[in-house]
Write a protein that binds this DNA or RNA. Sequence first.
DNA 1: CTGTTAGCGCTTTCAG
DNA 2: CTGAAAGCGCTAACAG
Lengths: 368, 368
Amino acid sequence: MQRAAQPRPVADDPILLPLPMTQPPSPPPRARTPRSTGRVTLDDVAQAAGVSPITVSRALRGARSVAPHLVEQVRQAAVALGYVPNLAARSLASSRSQSVAVLVPLLSNQLFVNLLEAAQTVFMQAGYQTLLGVTHYRPEEEQRLLQIHTAQRPAGLLLTGFDHTPATRELIAQSGIPCVHMMELAPGEPELPCVGFSQTDAGRDITRHLLARGRRRIAFAAAQLDPRAMMRAEGYRQVMREAACYDAGLECLDAQPSSMALGGRMFERLMAERPDVDAIFFCNDDLAHGALLAAQRMGVAVPQRVAMAGFNDLEGSDLMLPPLTSVRTPRVEVGQQAAQMLLALIEGEPLEPVQVDLGFEVVVRQST
Amino acid sequence: MQRAAQPRPVADDPILLPLPMTQPPSPPPRARTPRSTGRVTLDDVAQAAGVSPITVSRALRGARSVAPHLVEQVRQAAVALGYVPNLAARSLASSRSQSVAVLVPLLSNQLFVNLLEAAQTVFMQAGYQTLLGVTHYRPEEEQRLLQIHTAQRPAGLLLTGFDHTPATRELIAQSGIPCVHMMELAPGEPELPCVGFSQTDAGRDITRHLLARGRRRIAFAAAQLDPRAMMRAEGYRQVMREAACYDAGLECLDAQPSSMALGGRMFERLMAERPDVDAIFFCNDDLAHGALLAAQRMGVAVPQRVAMAGFNDLEGSDLMLPPLTSVRTPRVEVGQQAAQMLLALIEGEPLEPVQVDLGFEVVVRQST
DNA sequence: CTGTTAGCGCTTTCAG
DNA sequence: CTGAAAGCGCTAACAG
């Protein structure tokens, strides 16, 4: 049965996942085979309803080729017995599954939590379960996770970024599982489905904003040093070079994970080593939050003495003292759109724009 | 006869896939079209390695009852063919799965993200995949998620809190799937596996701390109003009554989700409506962070004019101005321990302490 | 230590 | 619209 590409069934639809309100009358009559689990199966429901198993299967999945009265009959039998379909059997028989794997680098960055939550919501509403993977920004760990997840035959894959090992690319291609990438664009490979925005452009724009504010000794502070941070660095460098302001000594790079505490330390270090700095572009807002607090503690006036800008416009940036200038990135939209694109691919629908650029926005506040 | 048996897009695959040749003009009476997916299966590996399928199965799963040289042989064949086991088939055959469902109320509270990440790490290291569910603090949503997840037959269940519908309890009991609860204790049901701490005691202790600092008009500010927040409220009330300081007008309850912004608004409201307040216990640190920033903006001295305490000791609490007094809750440990207990239950091992109280700690800083 | 046999519970295929 | 038969790919249960 090839389900046509109609509006996708949304969660409370035909698929019956009944809840036994009471003890089912009697577990399957007698032990059938030595290996039977003793659970209520489709066959049990069929017997109870007085139809064949396949009719039960069709009725419960909402196939329209079953007489309404039979559907009702089957449904009642299923509820009465407390039938719960076995998805392993279903996916073995149909070679199709109801789960989707989502891989994010970290959960300690709010950005990825928002991404994950947005995607998870879309998947759940479409009846798909979310398998979570955390790569810790390590391509090898991503590969391992993918090897494990691939064995589960998820219906789709949602990955963050393009930083894969060759083996990972091979694995994805071989598996034939639809895959959508988040947070970056791949202009070089126009057939690769992805939704994000240009990290380099974003880095460029926020740096231009600082220059427009009259700053010249603009530092760039980044943690983690993942590919996307490095793209933002690239944007920063381009603009600084164009303005003849580039100074490698103003780059403050630290491979540790991003955090408020690290931002505070970076700020202290910068002020000590480069007291001439007049602005700082932090690669992520948590760093900037920490720096803002450190500045207050140290009595450094922001933006008078040093202007500060962040990235991602995370929670609280608008509440800081002073409110933080940042780049609003469409993370929730990225998660949603990516999930929807993946669902379309899973259903075999064509992707209208294969790559979606959701853009970004420089949000100017008092810190610059 | 649509066979559509496309060979996989692999360049010269040396392996003979079990795909029949072209169909003869008139197929024999009982001939059916095979449903093979064209993927490499265990049988393919067995043929290539010159052993039986079950030997491959055992070798690949690391059973010790296979000769070392055969294990090696099988392993090589599997790698050469790019074999990926089909977990649906495995779990159908063994009626056992390699996935675990983890349900949390929200991902917008850092607390649950930490919990999830800790548990996920333990599961991944033990070879289990994590199915993520978000309940939004709604028991009915939890029930629905559980109905869906149960069909997947996860090996175990990790739930946050005890706030279930009766149907949920029934479902868990019926399913026979091991289940561990996080973040609370259930003294009333000593057989229910759980790991957490006493929310009421924590509420009590932090309130006592404020009293000990000489405060008397201590407000209680909570968002979301979930069961655990209400337990902390209970602790607060008990202590305030004991001290003859209880004043219902000092309770500031708001069912909206917790956030920095809400904390700021709550603080403003409290200061306007109850200018006599001399301390505030916020039910979660994000509220307190927002309040601290609002206080600064409004020129309200903390702790001189109003003392402030939070809960959970989230990231940044030690960096705020002034640093925030809070209750450190062992969320990472809860996630880890709960995951380990669940793994033990899955393996059928006995649980030494069925309920684990991990305690908490009042961290006193300058805000009180 | 290795293999044979017989399913796990569901859906696909093909026929009425 | 309904059903019978035949697996999906793997592993439990027994032999040898």
